[in-house]
């Protein structure tokens, strides 16, 4: 049970959150202008690194805010959390 630091509510149990996958994958500006392959990449392709990963979480059982976290997928350590719209912070 991870302890996830919600940027608003502070540390809460992982069970209060929903996972939202890779962060910074924006909905395309004009989907109609994309090729099938480009659209499929948006729909179906995500990174899967071992190590630091910027990902989205939503504090569904709390303040219901979405935010981003940089988590080490190998150790589960969360190195930073930041609000939607903010750039990914530099982490060690």
């Amino acid at each position: 049970m991870l302890l996830i630091p919600c940027p608003w509510c502070g540390p809460r149990d992982e069970a209060e959150f929903h996972y939202g996958g890779q962060a910074h994958v924006a909905y395309p500006e004009n989907p109609a202008a994309l090729s099938d392959e480009e659209w499929a990449r948006y729909l179906f392709f995500r990174d899967n690194p071992k190590g630091l990963f910027a990902e989205r979480w939503s504090h569904t059982a709390g303040c219901r805010r979405w935010f981003n976290a940089v988590r080490d997928t190998a150790t589960n350590e969360i190195h930073a959390v930041y609000r939607v719209g903010e750039p990914r912070p530099v982490t060690a």
Binding site: H18, R56, S58, T60, R65, W66, V84
Partner: peptide, 9 residues
Amino acid sequence: DWMEEWLQT
């Protein structure tokens, strides 16, 4: 949640 996700993100 779906609505909030689109609105917020």
